[in-house]
Design a protein around this nucleic acid. Sequence first.
DNA 1: CCCGACCTCAACCCTTCGGTTGATCCGTGC
DNA 2: GCACGGATCAACCGAAGGGTTGAGGTCGGG
Lengths: 220, 220
Amino acid sequence: MTDGTSYPQDGGAVSVLVVDDHPVVRAGLLALLSVQPGLRVVGEAGDGEEAVQLAHELAPDVILCDLRLGEGPDGVDVTRAVRASGADRAPAVLILTTYDHDADLVRAVEAGAAGYLLKDAAPTAIVSAIEASARGETLFGPELTERVVATMRVRRAELSARELEVLRLVADGLSNREVARTLFVSEATVKTHLNHVFGKLGADSRTGAVATARAAGLLD
Amino acid sequence: MTDGTSYPQDGGAVSVLVVDDHPVVRAGLLALLSVQPGLRVVGEAGDGEEAVQLAHELAPDVILCDLRLGEGPDGVDVTRAVRASGADRAPAVLILTTYDHDADLVRAVEAGAAGYLLKDAAPTAIVSAIEASARGETLFGPELTERVVATMRVRRAELSARELEVLRLVADGLSNREVARTLFVSEATVKTHLNHVFGKLGADSRTGAVATARAAGLLD
DNA sequence: CCCGACCTCAACCCTTCGGTTGATCCGTGC
DNA sequence: GCACGGATCAACCGAAGGGTTGAGGTCGGG
């Protein structure tokens, strides 16, 4: 991604690495940020692996990273990899997301993201968020925090891997018997898992559980 | 023009109106398209009303329009308004969408859209799509057509207003009794509606019906 | 005017689901 | 070792969901 394009040098500016799998969005961020005097886009990546590699090579101040990156590692993985690299000045990771109800947002924050932005945010908001995170500040969107907290609440009632597996199949419309056959377990086991899910999600029916799980972003 | 065929004027460049509610995406499209020799971006809009107004004022060859535009009219409404204006050379509308399984896509095509693009499409694909639609061609994505056809099939099995109303409540996790109370009808009526839904969607359970309806984009 | 589509409701029957209790087995961690 | 949580299963029961038939009402189009 850094092949033919050359990025200007500038000692005092905040260096930014732009990561997004959509070429259009990448171009848009590039266009918006490149005209900002205090910022300097030093590179761009279209997937998670490229992002991590460029993060090491370029050591930017801030990484502006989409949460979902198509195939392979996502924004959470990138965040974890960058923050866990143990560098003295690990880049601050600013997560971009389309949906404010994304459950992965919580995972991103837990992984060490400095903050998150909605994709329809105003350009000025994006710029100030980048500058803030470059100063080491952790920022949270205004009305988003409550949503994250709400999601946290559901997340705290962590579903086990098996429970989530069952719930996904139920969400696809399978009956208990079909789920049992799919997972090679007895119908009783499926019912037990589902009862645990009901308790954890505060639901009292399969459709109710699917509804709240979907609202919390546990499915997708 | 004795043969009745009309080609874009003004030095051969195709005039484009960019419509998207996300400033970032608008900037990206602008950046990508403005460097194309055969294209000329004559305007941009951030919502549906602005788009329709600018479409009349600027009379562009092509309108590149996001399907979802936040509040107010969406891409389908814009398409309908522009195509139904009865102008001699109504602009071709090219719909942008994030999801290839969007049921509104069908509505957009029915409303007279020239084609549709995924937002993660390559810049070259976007450019060639714009040029093709400027020539009056109707284009469909390669693997997307089958999805649209599949959606069409479900859409043909049109749900009545009441059936859809019941299904939405079921999708929210309500029981038959709760749905009945919400809609001020008897539980028997709810069951009847649901049975009709099952038949039309080819499902055999409430969760199954919700799953297929969601896959077809009937909910949202 | 009658037909069809939609909305409404009832009675019946069978299946599935939801709730409970209790049990075994296997890992992880103190 | 023991406790704990997760995964697995069994048996049971009442409640809810699903399937069928039948029937009454309204409304718009041929």
